[in-house]
Nucleic acid binder design. Structure first.
Lengths: 273, 273
DNA sequence: CGTTTATGTTTCGCTATGCGAGACAGAATC
DNA sequence: GATTCTGTCTCGCATAGCGAAACATAAACG
């Protein structure tokens, strides 16, 4: 029972020498690529725009988008002549979320709430998707101006505290693969990005948590702590908020350690079933 | 600029006479069908199980699942030798949610909150996906035992108050199409289901809202009101809770009318931008 | 108005692509 | 060490899906 999942990077030539991977279904990948084009900012996209972004020829885009529409994953707005995401994608996301142990979530929520209130920011759990961290749970403190990033929101792996914590806890082989991809994405910025990640490694080794001081979003600071689920999958917690509320000093000496304790506590709760 | 979206039902023969629709991309549809197999209850599925549920031969399932894994939409658990939903699906769902006007959501949340508290139940907004309604927003009152259905949760179109409200507000042609599909799904139960839906139509005509008294879930009762967004897409609100908290009388004379007012208010807010 | 430029959809012949019966290969159970 | 699960890989075949080009519609000019 060998496996064909020895790697999950996308642009790899998986076959020995010749052309492409005989096991890879292009039409499926292309269709999903279309769905990916719809980021929160861009609600409606036309065929041409989709074709431009994906590099797929227009007729193919038309066919794929038509298929996705029939299946409910895209909606077609007749007045605009453009597509938008359909309700189908939502239920997939929900199924995904509930696959993360529901009981667990109920148990740890109060603790997250407590820290969110205390820090006057928000506390979240995230998992990795490609080169982002995606929130699977997030609790806002009731501070006046709380960040408005809900479940499913994305943070950059390289510059967020959560992403750095994730990377720091990753086995070296996997981590190097990801870092390669980050580098390839922006050779220009790489030296600086790399420095930030490596500082994260040191912080994690020294204190058990990583920082981000406005490196992902200038207005936002936070700390992150990795966490390994009982089934072995890696995720990360963060606690963060607006820079003008949370001082570096407080993050470093107060919030950071508190988040580490929170994660320790969660680990214990899990191991006791 | 003719359109290939004149219909969105799935099992239709779109071509004139001969075989299938030349414009339909089977491989894409099959891949997405695999993803759909993962309902909240079933986290891990193996190739055989997936093949059984979808009717797709094992080798094809293997290929498609492998592709989805490479793309991040499935995870493969080596110890179990099974697949589970990957983080990729989450971000799609999030993009979908934020496409529903964020400002609007911020505006109406307080009103939903108020009614949720008052009714000691929960208030939600849903859109249709195939034969279900899917929550895109939900607010729980702080009553002790609140239902735990979050964003992305599904209710049956035919037996929930929200679904009936949706159907009641739908143009007849579209509605008949859906009702046909509901009938085909369970000829046996159809007479009773149909009666419930038609009662919903009458309720909507008489009072402006529909009921469900434990017809979707025996423990749960609620009322639903349809709502047409500024861009013309139809959705529905509901307000519901445990049957032992909400009496029929209260739903009918108090909560129902209050939900209708809420929706009217929302419509006004929207029309004033 | 025709003309131009922008859409998005359909045609249609070709061939790469994805299909799937069957072979194969590990695990688990006895 | 059979037997019975599992899931993956082989490989010849048929066709599904591809995409250049043609077509069709709508809007934006003068």
């Amino acid at each position: 029972m060998t496996s064909n999942h020895e790697s999950n990077d996308i642009e790899r030539f998986d076959d020995d020498l010749p052309g492409k991977d005989r096991q890879f279904v292009t039409a499926l990948a292309r269709g999903l690529e279309l769905l990916r084009c719809f980021s929160p900012g861009e609600r409606h996209l036309g065929v041409t725009e989709l074709a431009r972004r994906t590099g797929i020829p227009k007729p193919s885009v038309s066919r794929l988008a038509g298929t996705l529409t029939k299946l409910g994953y895209l909606d077609f707005s007749v007045p605009l002549g453009k597509y938008s995401l359909g309700s189908g994608v939502l239920s997939l996301g929900y199924a995904m979320l509930s696959s993360i142990d529901v009981r667990l979530r109920q148990i740890i929520k109060p603790y997250m709430q407590e820290l969110a209130e205390y820090s006057r920011g928000s506390v979240s759990i995230g998992i990795r998707d490609r080169l982002s961290m995606v929130y699977v749970e997030t609790i806002r403190g009731s501070a006046p101006i709380a960040l408005q990033r809900g479940i499913g929101a994305r943070l950059a792996l390289a510059t967020s505290s959560m992403g750095r914590a994730y990377l720091a806890a990753l086995p070296e082989a996997e981590r190097n693969l990801l870092m390669d991809q980050i580098r390839q994405r922006d050779e220009q910025a790489w030296p600086q990005i790399k420095a930030g990640i490596e500082q994260g490694f040191r912080d994690y080794a020294d204190r058990g948590f990583c920082f981000s001081f406005g490196e992902w979003d200038p207005e936002i600071v936070g700390v992150g702590v990795p966490f390994r689920d009982s089934d072995g999958s890696l995720m990360a917690f963060n606690c963060g908020g607006p820079a003008f509320i949370l001082s570096r000093e407080k993050l470093e000496n107060d919030i950071g350690p508190k988040l580490v304790s929170l994660v320790k506590l969660v680990s214990n709760v899990i191991s006791r079933h």
